[in-house]
């Protein structure tokens, strides 16, 4: 059964690696060039060119590895692990290029201000404004109990009942005992790993939500309600995204995977492949969500800069 999945895995790798490597270039290219003056614009274009050339070079090497991999398997293995080049492309080339193209992206983290030295903050305790209600916590807690019960229930049935492949011709009873032991180990492993991973995620989630609520929200000098509203909407999306993503969707996927692996242990290679692809898809979804939040945050920074500029032009001249 697993052999039929190998081409699917290869196909996924053939799509995943180039998409991951192209992402920083495409993302940076989509950010409009709003550099302050001509020299800054030229500098931003130079950084984009460096990013484009690096991306093309890495993709060319990857294509070479894939073609070589048709004859020598080691090259295909290296090609499969070519995607981590995403990190230097993103952090060292794409992010500086994005900030050079649009300086507001530089304010997506921290409490910097567009209005010279004037800084304004709201005195509302945001930790008290969480959109996650007490009732909502029932969802992840119920999920934890149900999935743990589903995994634990497997222990009530005997292990090693088959059908299982094995060297039955050599010693059928010894093979059965060995498979029963392997199934029992897998069951205990699933129970412990799922319980501790989900338990840990749930234990740190309230703290993570509090940290998300108190992320910097620097106001414009006049403390505009428009900006406060944008921050509140974005905070709500961020907190709910973290709650449903880390508290429900991620544990649900890991949980269903653990239950399937425990109840149908003979399809281990299938679950492995599905887990690998599913994990990658979850990771991509998380990256898309994170990017969406960053774009949102950059837009808010632009609004703040606009409001600060308006405040500065409205202010009466000293005298």
């Amino acid at each position: 059964m697993s052999d039929s999945f190998i081409p699917l895995g290869r196909l996924f790798m053939l799509i995943f690696v180039p998409v991951t490597l192209l992402f920083p270039l495409v993302f940076a290219a989509l950010v409009p060039n709003r550099a302050a003056d001509d020299s800054a614009r030229i500098k931003a274009r130079g950084m984009m060119l460096t990013l484009a050339m690096s991306t093309v070079a890495l993709l060319a090497i990857w294509v070479g590895l894939v073609l070589t991999g048709l004859r020598f398997n080691f090259a295909m293995i290296i090609a499969g692990f070519w995607w981590p080049w995403f990190f230097p492309l993103w952090f060292f080339l794409a992010m500086p290029a994005i900030v050079a193209k649009n300086p507001h992206w530089g304010w997506t983290v921290g409490g910097g201000s567009a209005s010279g030295g004037v800084r304004t903050a709201s005195l509302v305790n945001r930790e008290r404004t969480s959109p996650v209600t007490r009732a909502m916590w029932a969802v992840p807690i119920t999920l934890l109990v149900l999935i743990l019960a589903a995994i634990a229930a497997r222990g009530l049935l005997p292990f090693g009942v088959g059908p299982y492949p094995g060297d039955s011709a050599v010693d059928p009873e010894a093979a059965r005992v060995a498979y029963a032991e392997a199934e029992r180990s897998r069951w205990i492993f699933s129970l412990v790993v799922f319980g501790s991973v989900f338990g840990f995620l749930l234990a740190i989630l309230p703290r993570s939500l509090r940290r998300t609520l108190s992320e910097p929200e620097p106001m414009d000098a006049a403390g505009s309600p428009e900006l406060a509203g944008l921050y509140a909407a974005q905070r709500r999306k961020r907190v709910l995204g973290l709650f449903w993503g880390s508290g429900v969707v991620l544990p649900l996927c890991i949980g269903v995977f653990s239950v399937l692996q425990t109840w149908f242990p003979h399809d281990g290679s299938t679950w492995g492949l599905i887990g690998g692809i599913g994990g990658s898809i979850l990771g991509i979804c998380g990256a898309i969500y994170g990017t969406w939040m960053t774009v949102d945050r950059a837009k808010i920074s632009e609004v703040r800069a606009r409001l600060d500029a308006a405040d500065a032009s409205d202010a009466p001249a000293a005298g």
Partner: peptide, 20 residues
């Protein structure tokens, strides 16, 4: 504008918002 019983933001939040 701040009355008795009003809660102030946590130190971390105010420091982050003001960038200090």
């Amino acid at each position: 504008q701040l009355a008795e019983g009003d809660e102030l933001p946590p130190v971390r939040q105010l420091a982050a918002d003001l960038g200090i």
